[in-house]
Each structure stands twice: as structure tokens, then as C-alpha cells.
Design a protein around this nucleic acid. Structure first.
Lengths: 348, 348
DNA sequence: TTGTATGCGTTATCAA
DNA sequence: TTGATAACGCATACAA
């Protein structure tokens, strides 16, 4: 249903500047500027007149001009990989908490896992001269990030690290996370495990796999029994597809447990199994990654590798703020430790 | 675990301007500008020289200056109520699709349901002279929105409507949604239903309640048997709390079904019931609202009132773009129709 | 306490 | 095809 209401357009909009305000208040341009920036240096009487004029004219300070003159902005930006993944919005909440405390605005930009889109946003933000950028990059080694840094814009890498220094990063040990997941499954007696994740271009997917393989080797189980099941994306929908493929396997070759590269995949996989009348963990145990809020609320409460999401963001924001404010800033590489949260999906 | 790597700070960063580029390339300032904006009006030879100089100096166009001069920006912004709610990020995805097609950047700002924060973002965006703003407001009648409009910035209200015209809005009929949910529950034989939602300051919460009440009255059932269960927020956590209160009620007075103001509440409520050993829908039927992706993947697949999330965003972006580009733009009020998706949580 | 003048980096107009 | 110059709106140093 679409109801359309047609109205005449609002009247013309005269944008007023400090000059207009000055004229209206019968003062000079500099005085208006003083009212805006150092009200204490203006007598109460004239200040009141100026403020009245500003209200009458609907004056709005032009941030572009202010910034051009001042050279600095009051904005931070977070370029994230996937806005529809609650993990990243939780990280963003941590960033925003710190940004707000510093009286800075936070703009979120969604790269949707596209390097091109990411570059577009980074370029735009550089041109806007934002005060600093936080980014969970498609590829942390990409020269795009170096360009931003060379342009003199403080940048912090979030949820990834960089082999070269020259930048702060805050991340969680993804290899350890992969290791924890596999160790847990092996402890529970599983001898044939699937790693569900992809595309491999995503660093998190690779690192968690590396950790999984490392732990698997130490068990002495046949390498071939840790099988990769590639997905096209880290989404609920792709998780369902993985479920279809999983159930398509002959029982002999079917893994008894799955470790998913994130919770969205795990939830989709879980859903498909339940819908198909299978039991979790009896027919297939599942471990996810991130421990988003929805993991505990799933069809079968989901075991997952927990990351300190808010803290990740908060710490990253702190480092960024230090870099913008502290001339003696030293780049840091902060690595948090993940933690396995065991629930019904592996405990039965 | 925290590993810190300390490195010496990177060298000084000389920001270069068109003037520097002009000097380096041995041309005038205007020519550099032409290379930037109308490359065809510059001879290939000098263009190459200028481009080389730009690369050498790491030149980045200053968007503030450009904008100050041009008066226009290449940015859209979406101020949303809750970035951690997948409903809004799905709406944002719809907006971004259209924005990208128009070669515009989209900045997302999270008001976190705070009127103060919302005003802070809107003011900042107005000062930045963004090309247009989409907003899911805390209160659509708030004068804050009028201020933005009076400042001449095109604005579209998303997922809400406004009693006064003078602005485009794209929404879904929340009263109808509430009605659909209650009618479905009554059809399934429920005679005592809880409406779980709050705070009532949130418009969506009120409208869905109004629809629920309307449908209930038409059944002739005692009014007192549609009970409100207020929550402090629309979150999974608050849903769990509602579950505790629900189970705390004496069986006689306990509703047999719950209609939740959004899916996050419904998922929390569901989770608490399952954890407490109750069965859904046998002990309590549940209907959520929004039909986010996680609803179908829940402990018990959740019945929910579906809204066209991406379409909502896309249509809103279209209206905004029309307003910025078309002098004959007419404000429209677009209302989509919700749809009940019945799943196990009410069907058993 | 208030006014005047200058420049931030860019684009656009006009003249060469 | 290229160069010189004047704004855009603001903040600041300095003069009054």
C-alpha cells in the first residue's frame, strides 16, 4: 500500500552566514565569531543581541569553513566490514562510548566486505579531513591503509593486525580462538570435524582455520578428518547452504561436529539441521565464533568463541584519541584473548 | 593478554595543496584545478605533469574547501535508533544501495534511542552541510527535525510518519502490524494475551499496541485480558527479564500468548522460557515484530510481523535523492504493508 | 570590549 | 590551452 500526500514545497531557504548575523545585530563580524567561540570575551548585552539575531536568522555554523580555517574536525569514523553482523555494531558501540566522552561524533561506514567500497570511504574520509579513522579492513596489508596514514590521518586497525608496524591495532587472537574451538570439540570426543567458513580472502577466516589445524595436528588424528567446507560469505543464508551440503554427504563421511568461522554461519547451519529434523549436538555438534547476543538465544544455545566486543572498540578508540592528542604517542599492538563459551550445541 | 609493540612515530606529514602541486608542476593553480575537475580542458602533456606532481606530493583534495566553494557535499547520512538491531542495519543496506548508485557516500549515526544524541548528530550533520539526511527519529514530532528542514537540508523520515506534512516519510503500517499479530493469536484460540514492549515513548511501541487493542476489542474478549507488560528497552536482555516476570505470574493469570514489540524482545523471552524448561508454543505462544534473519533461526522458529526492510530504506533514499535533485519535488508519505509470517512459535 | 583585515584550499570567471 | 583573481564562511591576530 502506498499513500501519497502531495504538498507545496516549502519556501526558499536563505542560508545565513556570520556576516548576515553581524548585520542584523548591528555588530562586526568578529564579534559574532567571538560569541560563537569565546563568549566570555563579549559583553552580555551584545552577546544577547547577537544570539537573538542568530536565532531569528536560523543561523547554522558552516563546519566546512570552520574546518578549513581550523584544519581540524570533530569527527571520527569507523569503516566496518559488515554492518548487518551484530559483532561489528557491538564493536562500534564501544567506540562510540569513548568518542562521545571526548565530544566527538562517530560516523559509521559499511564496506560490505568490498575493497573498492572500503577505498571509496577511506578516500572520502581523508578528503573530509576527519580527525581519525578506525577500520576493520578487508585486507590489513592493503596499501590503501598506508595512503591514509601517509596523508597524516591517525588510523587504528580494529579486529585485525598488521605485519608492518606504523599503526596501532587492537585485535583478538584468532588463531587461539580456532584452537580453543577445535580442542573443545576433540575433548568432547569428535574425530571428524568440519571447518565452515569463507571466502578465504577474509583474514579472520584464514587465521581461525590456521588455529584449528594447529590444534588438530597436536591430537594426532588424521589430517584428512579436519575438513574444510567453504562458504561464499559469512552470513546466515550461507550457513543454511552449508547445512544442505553437510546433510548431502554420505553418513560415513559426514563430520560429527562443525566449527563455524562466525555465529551467523553457525546459526544458519543450526537452523537447517533442526528444520531437517536432525538433533544438535547428537547428529552434529556446532561451535560458532563471536558469541553475539543471538548465539545464546538460538534454536539450541550455541557454543561460541567469545570476543570482548565492546572492549575491542573502546580500546581502539582510546589509542586513536591518544594518537590525535599526544605528540609522544607510540604505536601499540593490543591483542586480546578469546574465550570458549560452551553451551548446549556441543554439550548435549 | 595484551602485547604492546612500541615503535618510533612516523615522520612529519606535510599536507600539500593545489598551490604546492602547481608549483611542483610548474603550472598555475587554475590548471591544477582543471586537471581535477575538467581534465578534458587540459592538454595531455601538462595533465600528465600535474598528475605526476600530485602523486609525488601525495596530494589529497580538501573536501572542506571544495564544499565551502561549491556549497554542496557528496554525502548522505542515516541517523538510526539502534545500530545493534539488525532491522535498522537492513534498512541501512537498502539506503546504501541507492546512495552508491548515485555516487554518494552514506554515513551512519547511531542515536541509541537518545534524543540528545540524535540532536547532536543532526546538528553536526547540518553544520557539515550534508546533501541529505535520513532519520528514524526518537520522536517524529520533535522540533529538532523542523530545524534541520528549515536549515534547508532535505530530510526523510524512515520507519515513522509525521502528522504535519512538509517532509517525506516512508514507513510501515504499525497499527496494522499490531492488528495482524493479535488476530493471528486469537485465531489460534488464545484468550489471554500479553503485549510485551516499552518504553512507551517509542512510537513503534505505541502504534503496535494501538493496533493490538483495536483487534482485541473486535473479538469481544474482555479488555482486561490483553495485558501490557512494559520493558525498559527493546533488547534481548529485556526480553529475558520479561520472561522472568511472565513465569512469576500465577498460572491462572498467566497469558497463553505474547506479542512482542520487536524480535529482540521476542528472542529474549523465548530464550528464557526454553531455559526454564517451558515449551513454546504450548506453554506460551510468541509473536515477534520485524522478522529479522535471526527470527527464523531461533530456538523455536519465531512467528513475526515482517516489514520490507531493504525496500523501506531504498524507497526512502529515492525520495531523498529526488528532493535534492528535482526542483518540482513533492513531499510524499509512503506507507508499506506488513505481513504476518507464522512459524512454530505460534503454530506448534 | 569591539572592529578590521587576512588567509585557510578550492572552484569558477575572465582575460591572455 | 593556460593563468590570474575573486569569492565561499569562518577564526584569529591585531588595532582601535
Amino acid at each position: 500500500m502506498t499513500v501519497s500526500t502531495r504538498d507545496p514545497r516549502g519556501g526558499a531557504v536563505p542560508r545565513s552566514s556570520v556576516k548576515d548575523v553581524a548585520a542584523a545585530a548591528g555588530v562586526s563580524l568578529g564579534t559574532v565569531s567571538n560569541v560563537l567561540n569565546r563568549p566570555d570575551r563579549v559583553s552580555p548585552a551584545t552577546r544577547a543581541r547577537v544570539e537573538q539575531a542568530m536565532a531569528d536568522l536560523g543561523f547554522v555554523r558552516n563546519e566546512s569553513a570552520r574546518q578549513l580555517r581550523a584544519g581540524t574536525s570533530r569527527t571520527l569514523a569507523y569503516v566496518l566490514l559488515d554492518a548487518t553482523n551484530p559483532f561489528f555494531t557491538d564493536v562500534a558501540a564501544g567506540i562510540e562510548e569513548r568518542a562521545e566522552a571526548a565530544d566527538l561524533s562517530l560516523f559509521m561506514c559499511n564496506s560490505s566486505n568490498s575493497a573498492a567500497r572500503e577505498k571509496g570511504y577511506l578516500d572520502h574520509l581523508a578528503e573530509q579531513r576527519v580527525q581519525g579513522i578506525l577500520v576493520t579492513p578487508v585486507d590489513p596489508e592493503s596499501p590503501t591503509l598506508d595512503e591514509v596514514i601517509q596523508r597524516g590521518i591517525p588510523l587504528v586497525v580494529v579486529d585485525r593486525t598488521r605485519s608492518r608496524p606504523g599503526v596501532c591495532s587492537v585485535s583478538v587472537d584468532d588463531e587461539l580462538g580456532g584452537r580453543l574451538a577445535v580442542e573443545h570439540l576433540v575433548d568432547r570426543g569428535h574425530q571428524r570435524v568440519a571447518y565452515v567458513g569463507g571466502p578465504a580472502t577474509i583474514g579472520q577466516v584464514r587465521d581461525r582455520w590456521v588455529g584449528a589445524v594447529g590444534a588438530w595436528r597436536e591430537t594426532g588424528l588424521p589430517e584428512a578428518d579436519l575438513v574444510q567446507m567453504a562458504t561464499a560469505a559469512l552470513t546466515v543464508e550461507e550457513g543454511r547452504r552449508a547445512g544442505e551440503r553437510m546433510l548431502g554427504l554420505p553418513t560415513r563421511r559426514r563430520p560429527t561436529a562443525a566449527f563455524c568461522a562466525n555465529d551467523l554461519l553457525a546459526l544458519g547451519l543450526l537452523q537447517h539441521l533442526i528444520t531437517s529434523g536432525r538433533r544438535v549436538p547428537e547428529d552434529l555438534a556446532i561451535v560458532g565464533y563471536d558469541d553475539i547476543d543471538f548465539a545464546a538465544a538460538a534454536a539450541v544455545p550455541l557454543s561460541s568463541v567469545r570476543q570482548p566486543r565492546q572492549l575491542l572498540g573502546a580500546r581502539a578508540a582510546e589509542l586513536l584519541l591518544d594518537e590525535t592528542a599526544n605528540p609522544a604517542h607510540q604505536h601499540e599492538r593490543v591483542v586480546f584473548t578469546p574465550e570458549l563459551v560452551a553451551r548446549t550445541s556441543t554439550l548435549g
